[in-house]
Design a protein around this nucleic acid. Structure first.
Length: 365
DNA sequence: CCAGGCGGGAAGAAGAACGG
DNA sequence: CCGTTCTTCTTCCCGCCTGG
């Protein structure tokens, strides 16, 4: 909505974040989030976040105003603990984090906070439009076309851009594209960062709507992802991705949306939806992986307490933390196939059964 | 050795707070 | 409740460094 009379401003983006010349990717952002949240997966007052960051003598506008999301409650600003924060806290820095952060930047939802002007709610729409309208639509994700001068031309000639200068914005954006590994986006296979990005997109879209007191029902998830061009912002559109969106929206829903990070809420939902709770009640806050049985490439790391829901309510298989760390699709499929064979043997399924007999045995649940 | 781009200073705009 | 002052944040600009 309001896409027509969008107004683009550079914001503090012409400032630098001192990413570190040789630092790998967006490592500084990963570190900043860990410090700002003090390793805890809870919304943090913006003041407190800033105080923690400033102790480390780090600039804070770029992470707060472009990568994170702020909501207001009783006049106080809170930075929201969402999928980006979860990934920063639950895993060491990696290329996967960089791509998720890059997507977060492109999606461009930063929320509302004191002193923010209206354009800061969608702070990087020039980057969002550059990717969608230019790199996706015109260049079919040929990322070799991305350059600082190409960005400067695109943004500078656009009516929506209200800044005086465009040079610094363009060079900084080009720099972030590089650090955020945008050149790895166009792969057509589904990768883990892409799955994380879908969860992040829903977290952000839902929070943003809440700012206008709009509550989002789960049957709106898929169409909202579409409206905010989730697939276009993450690389080339494929049928596989469109299918995956449907499965993942369901996983997001049964995990309870952003509630998935709160153990009590998940425990409550688990009691409602799943019979055997005991074994999971001792849940620690470690991470597990959920895999869709029809498509092994759809692997999502989720808080451990969601595992039961993912398994029973959304039909995902769940793997443990060590397995997740060095997950190997080939090996996984092989072992699952073996298990399936054994199960068939146990049930005494013979090679020359009639189709009817076979159906009767395998369909029962 | 030069060009281009990153880093950071500083001005002034935009809000918030204050005081009457 | 309004004008003024104070504070914070955005934006432009330029020096310096780096890599070619």
């Amino acid at each position: 909505m309001a896409d027509e009379k969008q107004e683009w401003r550079p914001g503090s983006f012409t400032k630098n974040f001192s990413w570190g010349r040789d630092a790998a990717g967006l490592e500084e952002l990963h570190e900043t989030i860990r410090i700002g949240f003090a390793e805890r997966m809870e919304d943090v007052p913006r003041e407190e976040f800033r105080a923690r960051i400033s102790k480390r003598n780090r600039p804070d506008y770029i992470p707060m105003n472009y990568f994170l999301f702020t909501r207001q409650s009783r006049g106080e600003d809170y930075i929201v603990a969402d999928e980006l924060v979860f990934q920063a806290l639950s895993a060491p820095h990696s290329a996967r984090f960089d791509k998720l952060a890059m997507f977060t930047f492109l999606l461009s939802f930063a929320g509302k906070f004191k002193r923010a002007n209206p354009t800061q709610r969608r702070p990087a729409m020039w980057a969002n439009a550059y990717i969608r309208e230019h790199i996706d639509r015109e260049f079919a994700w040929d990322t070799r076309r991305i350059s600082a001068s190409d960005i400067a031309t695109f943004v500078g000639e656009d009516e929506r851009y209200k800044g005086e200068t465009v040079g610094k914005l363009a060079t900084n954006l080009n720099f972030i594209f590089d650090k955020g590994r945008i050149r790895d986006f166009p792969r057509s296979r589904i990768e883990r960062w892409w799955v994380d990005a879908l969860f992040l997109a829903l977290d952000r879209i839902i929070e943003d709507r809440l700012l206008d007191r709009q509550v989002t029902a789960s049957d709106q998830y898929a169409s909202l992802l579409e409206r905010h061009h989730f697939i276009q912002l993450t690389g080339r559109r494929t049928l596989e991705k469109e299918m995956a969106v449907r499965h993942l929206v369901l996983l997001y829903e049964v995990c309870g949306g952003r509630e998935r990070f709160s153990d009590e809420a998940v425990a409550r939902r688990t009691e409602e939806r799943v019979p055997d709770v005991e074994e999971f009640l001792s849940a620690t806050d470690h991470v597990v992986g959920a895999i869709h049985p029809k498509n092994r490439t759809i692997l999502k790391s989720i808080p451990r307490s969601c595992a039961l829901l993912a398994r029973y309510a959304a039909g995902f298989e769940v793997i443990g933390e060590e397995e997740l760390a060095n997950f190997d699709i080939e090996r996984f499929v092989r072992s699952k196939t073996k298990e399936a064979m054994l199960r068939l043997q146990e049930r005494q399924i013979r090679p020359r059964m009639s189709a009817d007999e076979l159906m009767r045995i395998t369909r029962e649940k």
